[in-house]
Nucleic acid binder design. Sequence first.
DNA 1: CTACTTGCAAATCATTTGCAGATGA
DNA 2: TCATCTGCAAATGATTTGCAAGTAG
Lengths: 160, 160
Amino acid sequence: MPKDYSLGSVEIKLSPLERFAQFLQSRGKRVTRQRRLIVEQVFSHHDHFDADELIGHLQDLIAQRKLSRPTVYRTLAELTEAGLIRKMTLSGRGVYEHEYGYPRHDHLHCEICNRLLEFQSAELEHLVAEVAAEYRFHVTGHRMFVTGICAECRRRQGIE
Amino acid sequence: MPKDYSLGSVEIKLSPLERFAQFLQSRGKRVTRQRRLIVEQVFSHHDHFDADELIGHLQDLIAQRKLSRPTVYRTLAELTEAGLIRKMTLSGRGVYEHEYGYPRHDHLHCEICNRLLEFQSAELEHLVAEVAAEYRFHVTGHRMFVTGICAECRRRQGIE
DNA sequence: CTACTTGCAAATCATTTGCAGATGA
DNA sequence: TCATCTGCAAATGATTTGCAAGTAG
């Protein structure tokens, strides 16, 4: 029987915005219009994104000067600190994904379409623990990227 | 019996410089004094390094204008392309390690001392293959980073 | 009120590039 | 010879910062 590497979701008690508000409050920071707008856009759909893509989605607001590029960067950093999103670096630029409400997972990165597929593996977690024990290393996290070509791109390449 | 995650070395028939010369030739490129100096420094000891550290070691030569910063970057790119070294990105900046003459491995990254420990795991390779098969993903490589605190730093922290 | 925020413009910082002179095969 | 290289200075591009004006609590 093949194992299931797919992802479900994790139950959450607060909306991302509520959770962020909580974080901000605990830091003596304020819930501003800009921060609200950004959180809403970020959590409007589950996807990996970089700062430019996010800014692209917020283009209108930026054109109307309701929001600026630096504020987007500042807020992304806060969301990361708050644990709402997770930041990784792909070929030099920051890439983000939801952390709040999503289970821990790792990635398959397609070199052709640049997409990130997610998978979960209990064995991997176990293996990490085993290696760490051997090195007397205290694990706080891990990040695994498998690079290659996804099924779709392989098919497409086969055709072309 | 605990498993062995440590690394040996891989037998090589050519010195890094010879191998690089071969690569350069195949590309119609030249073996210059600068490229020689850089390869020699890079392979003078097994370690992880970034461009600045390497440039630091070559400081004298740079001061004497026998070598320049852009040439170091250019040569690092060529060495990577040649498969002599492997490039990774750690918090935004490029970090390199020997690939030629060293077995495939993954890393434990200490958040305190910033050191990279290497480990090898056949199980990990196997796991990657298994997950990839499930996704019909064609693997070309993988990169795994376990982050945490190394034994030395834990001891030091325990003391302080 | 007033400390935290923001937009703007300018600064950073690692890395890259254009180009005229230098050099390896 | 002469195409490839190199150093220099300047460009890049993502991200960050200083600062005066705006605003949440």
